[in-house]
C-alpha cells in the first residue's frame, strides 16, 4: 500500500487491475479463437478449390474432345 492510500483505495486499484486483466485476456482469447476458426474454414475451402481444379481439368478435356468431334473431317478418316 502506498503512503497516504487508504485500504479502500488500494482494494479499488487491485479490483481495477484485475478487471482490466480479465478484459484483455478475454479479448485475446476470443481473437485467437476467431483466427483459429477462420484458419479451419480456409483450410476446408482449400479442399473445395482442389475439387474445382480437378473438375476444371476434366471439363477442359471433355471440351477438347467435343471440339475434336465437331472438327473431325469424316472424309479424312
Amino acid at each position: 500500500m502506498a503512503s497516504g492510500e487508504t485500504p479502500g483505495q488500494a482494494a479499488l486499484w487491485v479490483f481495477a487491475g484485475a478487471a482490466l486483466l480479465l478484459a484483455f485476456g478475454l479479448t485475446a482469447t476470443f481473437a485467437m479463437l476467431g483466427l483459429w476458426r477462420r484458419a479451419n474454414a480456409l483450410s476446408s475451402a482449400g479442399l473445395s478449390l482442389e475439387r474445382v481444379a480437378l473438375a476444371e481439368a476434366r471439363a477442359d478435356l471433355a471440351s477438347e474432345d467435343m471440339a475434336a468431334a465437331f472438327n473431325d473431317d469424316p472424309a479424312a478418316r
Partner: peptide
C-alpha cells in the same frame, strides 16, 4: 463442371 463434362462427352 462435372455435369458439363459428362454432357460434353
Amino acid at each position: 463442371l462435372n455435369l458439363v463434362a459428362d454432357a460434353m462427352g
